[in-house]
């Protein structure tokens, strides 16, 4: 549905994108992850035909963004970063304007606007001026205008920024509900958002793609080893020694200890060997107490930091 190949963009001398390549399948939700200034918004602006790339190709729904921008624009819904809206218009008027301009049939505009207002929970504020709305409502109006032409592709630049936690959950639910029929690219720097809503993640840093994968694969790829966190009541010196004698254990790290002799450890083992079965009997045989044993998962935050600070 979306194909991006070798995209570069210069702003004067500043090299914002340095050959970004990725593709998105129909019906997929792709998370676009990166620190501020990494080139997320620039990529999105190219995909929405706001400006063309310096070099490279991008196709949306089979149309080249440079050759046939009008065809591309007809098929997308775009929510820009700071949700720029005409503040002197009412919600309903604005959505009707957006619907008309995006080519919704004149007789269907009323129904379409009513439908998106319902989807985005805007019906209660339809007669209010956009200037009077709170940030959360403006965000929803922005999403509603993106949806108003029932687009094949949705491009959302940080859709949940500035919302309260309840609204965030609602918007995420809404976005998830839109998947399937629509292809969605969603940029964010809130990491849990990606693992919650996206099927695939593109991590971009300093204008380069540093990783493309599913959130699960990324986790296991970056980890490189099996890690477990263990909580044991026993003398820590001996505990570490004992754990290290288990076959397959590479490293034991003591994370901390509480006053009563209970210690937290991280045990790293080689991949493909489950050492959990062996930990319990060893500890018990020594007369210590095993209080906790669980796989230590790297969060997306850890992966992100690891990838982005690699160089």
């Amino acid at each position: 549905m979306i194909e991006v190949e070798g995209l570069t963009k210069y702003y004067g001398n500043y090299h914002a994108l340095k050959g970004v390549t990725f593709s998105v399948k129909k019906g997929e939700i792709l998370g676009f992850l990166g620190p501020n200034g990494s080139g997320k918004t620039t990529t999105m602006r190219i995909l929405t035909c706001f400006f063309p790339p310096t070099s490279g190709k991008a196709k949306v729904a089979g149309f080249d963004v440079f050759e046939e921008p009008l065809e591309v624009r007809r098929r997308i819904g775009y929510l820009p970063e700071n949700v720029p809206l005409y503040k002197d218009m009412t919600v309903e008027d604005y959505l009707a304007f957006a619907a008309g301009i995006k080519g919704v049939d004149g007789r269907k505009i009323k129904d379409t606007v009513a439908r998106v207002m319902d989807e985005c929970a805007l019906t209660g504020v339809s007669y209010k001026l956009i200037a009077e709305l709170s940030k959360g409502y403006r965000q929803r109006v922005g999403l509603a205008q993106a949806l108003v032409n029932d687009p094949e592709v949705l491009i959302l630049d940080e859709p949940t920024i500035g919302l309260d936690p309840k609204q965030i959950i609602e918007i995420r639910k809404l976005i998830k509900g839109l998947a399937g029929q629509r292809t969605i690219i969603l940029s964010t720097h809130i990491l849990p958002e990606v693992s919650m809503t996206c099927q695939r993640v593109v991590i971009i840093n300093e204008g380069r793609v540093v990783a493309i994968d599913t959130p699960q694969n990324l986790t296991s790829k970056v980890e490189g080893a099996n890690r477990f966190s263990v909580k044991i009541d026993g003398p820590s010196q001996h505990v570490i020694k004992e754990l290290e004698t288990i076959q397959g254990v590479e490293k034991v790290i003591k994370k901390g200890a509480s006053a009563n002799g209970i210690g937290d450890y991280i045990v790293e083992s080689i991949k493909g060997r489950d050492i959990r079965k062996e930990i319990a009997p060893r500890i018990v045989n020594k007369g210590w107490a095993l209080l906790e044993l669980k796989p230590h998962e790297m969060s997306l935050e850890d992966i992100f930091v690891k990838l982005v600070t690699k160089e």
Partner: peptide, 14 residues
């Protein structure tokens, strides 16, 4: 200034 030009020019208009 308000950035609405970004939305307007990404609508299917010339």
């Amino acid at each position: 200034k308000s950035g609405t030009i970004e939305l307007l020019l990404t609508y299917p208009v010339t």
